[in-house]
Design a protein around this nucleic acid. Structure first.
Length: 303
DNA sequence: AATCAGCTCAACCGCGAAAGG
DNA sequence: ACCTTTCGCGGTTGAGCTGAT
C-alpha cells in the first residue's frame, strides 16, 4: 500500500498559478509567516491549493530576493565546481548562490551547463585516450594529493560507474553521460575505495597556475569560444586549492576541499562540508597529512 | 503561413528524513 | 521505541515558447 497523498488531489487546484493566487499567498506569508505548517497554510490563506504546491511556489517564485536567469560566469563556475564535488545536491549548491533556488539551479544545469561540460569532457577524453602512456603525469609535479584516475577510453564511457559525487547522493540516478562526464574527471570511486596518491615531484613555483595548454585536451581556442570556456571552468575546479590557498586546512591540491574553497564563507565550513560528503577521503587526508586534525562536531550545517 | 523539433522552466511526484506525539 | 505527520529534496513532466524548415 502506498503512502497517503498529502492532500486530496481531486479537490485542489493544480497547474500554473494565477496572479490572484500569487497575491493571496504572498500577502499571507508576509503577514503571518508560514506558521511552520504548509499543509494547513492554504486553507488559512484562502487558497484551494495543496500545501506542497504553496511551499514550492513561495520558495521558487514568490519569495523576496529571488533572482531569475542572468547567471554570471562566476555562478556557472560555482555550480560546475560543486557539481563535480558533491553531485546533484541542488539545495546545497543553491545555498551558495544568493537569490538562487534549487529548482532554478537544477533547471539551469540540466538545460545549459551540462551541455557545456559534456563538450569539455569529450575533448578531454580524446586527449587522455591519445596520451594514455603518460597518464601518471596528470597530477603534474605539484607535491599534491590528487585522485589519479586511469585514462578512460572513450569506448568505456557508457559503462562507467557513477562519479563519486553521484555516489554520495542518496538518490543516485546519474545518467550514463553524466557519469561519463564527471566520473572521468574524479574517478576511482573515492567514497567506496579511496585511492589517493601523492605526487612528490619537484616543488612547484608558488602559486603556479597551470596553463590550459599544459593540461587541455585541445589547443587553446580563441577567447570566448564555448569549449575554451568549458575547459577552463572545470580545470579551475581542480586547481582551486591553489587559487584560494586552502592548503592550510587541506593538503594542497585536494580536489574535495578545493572545489568548495571560494564558495564557503570560512574554512571551518569548508572542512566540515568536505568531511561530511567525503568521509573516507577526508580520513585518508588526515592520515596522510599529520598537520591536519579532524575537528570535533562535523556535519552540523550541511546534512 | 504552417508545421515541426528542440528548448525552457514552472510545477508535480514520490521518497527519505526529521519532528512530534 | 514506535507510529504518524510534515518537510525538504531531487528527478521528471509537460505546456508554452522559439527558431528552423
Amino acid at each position: 500500500m502506498g503512502r497517503a497523498p498529502c492532500c486530496d488531489k481531486a479537490s485542489v487546484k493544480r497547474g500554473p498559478w494565477s496572479p490572484e493566487e500569487d497575491e493571496l499567498l504572498r500577502s499571507y506569508v508576509q503577514n503571518h509567516g508560514t506558521g511552520g505548517n504548509w499543509i494547513a497554510l492554504p486553507h488559512k490563506a484562502g487558497l484551494n491549493r495543496c500545501g506542497k504546491s504553496c511551499r514550492l511556489r513561495w520558495l521558487n517564485y514568490l519569495r523576496p530576493d529571488i533572482k531569475h536567469g542572468g547567471y554570471t560566469e562566476q555562478e556557472d563556475r560555482i555550480i560546475c565546481s560543486l557539481y563535480n564535488s558533491i553531485g546533484s545536491r541542488w539545495s546545497i549548491i543553491a545555498s551558495k548562490l544568493p537569490g538562487r533556488t534549487d529548482n532554478d539551479v537544477k533547471n539551469y544545469w540540466n538545460t545549459k551547463l551540462k551541455k557545456k561540460a559534456i563538450v569539455m569532457h569529450q575533448q578531454q577524453q580524446e586527449y587522455y585516450c591519445h596520451h594514455s602512456g603518460s597518464a601518471g603525469g596528470r597530477g603534474r609535479d605539484r607535491g599534491a594529493l590528487v585522485t589519479t584516475p586511469p585514462p578512460v577510453p572513450q569506448s568505456q564511457c557508457a559503462s562507467m560507474q557513477p562519479s563519486p559525487a553521484s555516489a554520495s547522493s542518496a538518490v543516485t540516478t546519474a545518467s550514463g553521460s553524466d557519469a561519463c562526464s564527471f566520473g572521468a574527471m574524479y574517478t576511482s570511486s573515492t567514497l567506496q575505495a579511496p585511492v589517493l596518491e601523492r605526487y612528490d615531484g619537484a616543488a612547484p613555483a608558488p602559486h603556479h597556475a597551470p596553463s590550459l595548454a599544459e593540461f587541455s585536451p585541445a589547443p587553446p581556442t580563441p577567447a570566448g569560444d564555448a569549449n575554451s570556456w568549458a575547459s577552463t571552468m572545470v580545470l579551475d575546479d581542480m586547481f582551486l586549492p591553489e587559487l584560494l590557498g586552502a592548503g592550510e586546512f587541506f593538503p594542497p591540491g585536494d580536489v574535495f576541499g578545493g572545489g568548495f574553497g571560494p564558495l564557503l564563507q570560512d574554512r571551518a565550513s569548508l572542512q566540515e562540508l568536505s568531511a561530511c560528503y567525503f568521509p573516507n577521503a577526508q580520513a585518508e587526508m588526515w592520515a596522510a597529512a599529520d598537520h591536519v586534525k579532524p575537528p570535533a562536531g562535523m556535519c552540523h550545517s550541511f546534512t
